[in-house]
Design a protein around this nucleic acid. Structure first.
Lengths: 200, 200, 200, 200
DNA sequence: TATGAATGAGTGTTCATTCAT
DNA sequence: TATGAATGAACACTCATTCAT
């Protein structure tokens, strides 16, 4: 499941990245249906042998992409929560929501497909931990403001964000600002806050 | 995509159903990974030749299952909305939510898997229409109570329900009553209603 | 390891046999080097899919061939030993030796290659039992004549026969009668009998 | 087939030997299945590029190992036959047999595997000549004692030794002394000598 | 000279689908 | 109409070998 080598420098690093980027593009354009190792190698401009030098299996590539997605989210959320210190609850939540949409905004189709695929896969340890850390981050924020049942609330909040973002992408929406407002309404509503106030 | 024949009576009907039921069970137990036509035929107690007499392709079987899911939902929602006539808004929404969870309650693994798969497939016309009718149903209910932006609201409401139900199933939750309460909180919140009142 | 289906009749039986025969021929002509499933299927005049309908893996085909070899040997030895009842020891051993050479005489290259390959493979249960039954047969014969250390003697006798037959085949010998005489000398000598008497 | 260079001195020689030793160990531990050039290089602590600097192909490495085995045998036999001058026939044969078992005693698994593999390979000229010299050695010994049909006798003797040694190794035997006694019985018997006399 | 990243032909195997019976 | 043997394109993956550095 883990990459085979990480001589993360020079030519190797480039090959590694090319494989991941080609994989991402194939998923974006064709979904899993045509996500085959030979096609990945071809699009990466790399031989099939090289692909297997860096990733032990097709699943490992997928796992790497998924892990990447979660790392990105974790980073975005971390930055948002850090930046929210000292701000009122509503503002903090708003920043959280915006951060949650970032990776959808960057590569909607990729985020959509990867999140969909992840649900049908057995999670590897590392990804599991990433998700846990994400939940911990959200839980921590809620705790800071004395919310009840922080664990469950965080879980539901994430599920709602996820559900709305996935549905919007599936429907072909591209207006992230509009989506943000609806998301804010859903999240604020769930948290018992007044979403009719002026959003940031 | 459509079944090959609909002599919806007698032995043919039975064979059709056996194939669908076998498919459902395979999806529930093993996911898509082992969802193969030969296995379906075997579990249905039918020859592979017969399977192809009733369904032109594997996708057609999947499409039929997905269509079935939506038909079920449509029916459940229809009944709920019908039963809600004359009741206050909060009660109507509560009935709507309960109806939405029915198919998750009946066969959680199947609902989970099919909804996940659906998102990665091109929708056939008939399923598209079914989904539209579902949205129309919800939209109609909202309209009856003078809600603003009924289309968008219905869309988001469905997305939120979907998101929470999928996340709960993925996490292995089985307590549908608990899920209902959280769902109620999310939906009521999104609609600007007070979810702290006594639920039905 | 075991064949997948044995509807040992009609077309199926033919396909099964064609695969085995093609495999045998490839082993005879090219050894393991070119023993590939696609080549087997091609030479059998059968699609690769059919091959896998009857044998779950390449190893299973090899195992079937090896099993066949041992079944043949068992049968030949059984007949020889049965026919030797009432005959003197020397005659009984002579019949045993002749029977042991039969499968080498029929398809020398195949016997040679299969016996060589067998030594490098983990034996499946059934083949193991076949070999045991062969040893039991030889042991029984020796016991009938009050030989000491029948187990070890049978083992060594089989090894000597095997060694001579393999070496002769490797050297390209074809004169089975000449080989028989040398084999007789070796076996009789090992058993402490006079091999200078007139052979049968 | 031949090593690429024989600057049989200094570092080159060391690299060559490391490759051969790594190959031997892999064959002993895993058989041919995992006998791959990359693995050999890795275990030898040498880059794959260097491996190909010394051996033009995987077969060349195998050939070198086989050649080494025969060189060893030739040396052991030569020493035995030299040491047997002036001794009676029985003693000479006993020394020959003991010498024949030496390489099996030293590295049973390696000898077993290499001898098995050799039979399935086209012999290179040099190995062919080595085997011939071995046969000449044995033939010469027999001739010294006025044995009839020395060529054939030598051939058969070698085959019998080989057959028993391989079978014993395959069966997991480790008691070389016991094996020697059975071998003596077989060889003496084949030569028409009394193996019931006291062995050396 | 030594390295190891890169190559790609070739392997075993699956599975949706067809069609003779 | 039902059967299930047969098909073969397509797939994941390996490994001997090359060659730029």
């Amino acid at each position: 499941m883990k990459p085979r080598k990480q001589p993360r420098q020079g030519r190797s690093r480039q090959t590694c990245d090319a494989i991941l980027e080609a994989s991402a593009r194939i998923l974006e354009e064709d979904g899993i249906a045509r996500f085959t190792t030979n096609r990945i190698a071809e699009r990466a401009g790399v031989s099939i042998g090289s692909l297997y030098q860096y990733y032990p299996s097709k699943e490992a590539i997928l796992a790497a992409l998924i892990r990447g997605l979660h790392e990105e989210l974790l980073e975005d959320l971390g930055a948002a929560i850090k930046g929210a210190t000292g701000r009122p609850f509503a503002t903090a939540i708003e920043m959280l929501l915006k951060a949650s949409l970032l990776h959808h905004a960057r590569r909607p189709a990729l985020a959509f497909t990867l999140e969909r695929l992840e649900a049908g896969l057995p999670l590897d340890q590392e990804t599991f931990e990433l998700k846990q850390r994400i939940r911990v981050l959200v839980t921590g924020l809620l705790q800071r403001f004395g919310i009840d049942g922080v664990g469950q609330t965080a879980f539901d909040l994430i599920a709602i964000i996820h559900g709305l973002a996935q549905a919007a992408t599936a429907a072909g929406e591209t207006d992230m600002d509009a989506l943000y407002l609806r998301l804010r309404r859903a999240a604020f509503g769930y948290l018992g806050m007044d979403w009719r106030s002026t959003p940031e």
